[in-house]
């Protein structure tokens, strides 16, 4: 697998406070990378730098490079283009409450270009199927997205992100608000999605990181402490800090 995403000497600040310190890492295509670390270690800032969402925060700034297929997303791509190619799923499901299930899925497509009604319907069905939601909602496509269960709403949000055909999907604790059954569905979904996209998922649940990811990145105090294959890292981490974190000695 080739490197899909690479960051080089990435630094990020909120005003005077430095949230990321000289982070360099490569992420292979068609893989799931878990991003772990204690609260405040820079995980969210890191993934928000990858789709240029950090820069929308007042007084925030970024230095360094983020390369998507070798192209610097800060100097050679438009921010909207970046966010189209690098989708994001948030901690709490956030379907548009005044839109139907199907409209939620194609909302981004409608904004992005001119698609016919039939085309949009096909895209909605395809992506609802991709997240395993089609069978559950096919008779209720006109219902409000907000009427679905929490787990269904989160998969709806993933379908919405997928509809834009992103090359990378960033997930910020996507299952933290879900029950165990819904969590399992999302975790299983990741294994399907990685066949055609690259996923970075923030999780506070180290067991989940071990279950779902191919690679794991451990952050501490804004630094990337260790990045490696999940199996190796969870059996025998190289860095004592990683060991302390994943064995629950701090954080």
């Amino acid at each position: 697998m080739e490197t899909k995403l690479e960051v080089k000497n990435l630094n990020a600040w909120f005003g005077e406070k430095q949230a990321l310190k000289n982070v360099s890492a490569g992420f292979k295509g068609n893989s799931v990378t878990a991003v772990i670390g204690p609260s405040g270690c820079g995980k969210s800032t890191f993934i928000r730098c990858i789709n240029r969402m950090h820069e929308v925060v007042p007084r925030a700034r970024v230095t360094g490079e983020v390369l998507l297929d070798g192209v610097d997303i800060y100097t050679s791509m438009d921010a909207m283009d970046v966010r189209r190619k690098v989708g994001m799923v948030f901690q709490r499901p956030n379907p548009f409450p005044n839109m139907s299930v199907v409209d939620n899925v194609v909302a981004g497509l409608k904004l992005a270009g001119s698609y016919g009604k039939d085309e949009l319907s096909e895209m909605a069905e395809k992506n609802l199927k991709a997240v395993g939601l089609w069978e559950e909602v096919k008779d209720e496509l006109r219902k409000s997205g907000a009427s679905l269960s929490g787990g269904q709403q989160q998969r709806l949000c993933i379908a919405r992100a997928l509809a834009m055909e992103p090359e990378v999907i960033l997930m910020d604790e996507p299952t933290s608000a879900l029950d165990p059954a819904s969590t399992t569905k999302v975790e299983e979904l990741l294994q399907q999605l990685k066949k055609f996209t690259t996923i970075l998922i923030i999780t506070h649940n180290v067991s989940q990181a071990a279950r779902v990811s191919d690679m794991t990145a451990f952050f501490y105090l804004g630094e990337l402490i260790e990045l490696g294959e999940t199996e190796s890292m969870f059996k025998a981490p190289q860095n004592p800090l990683t060991e302390r974190y994943i064995t629950g000695r701090f954080g």
Partner: peptide
Amino acid sequence: HQPFARDLR
């Protein structure tokens, strides 16, 4: 406890 690292070992 779902042990990891040295605890798992």
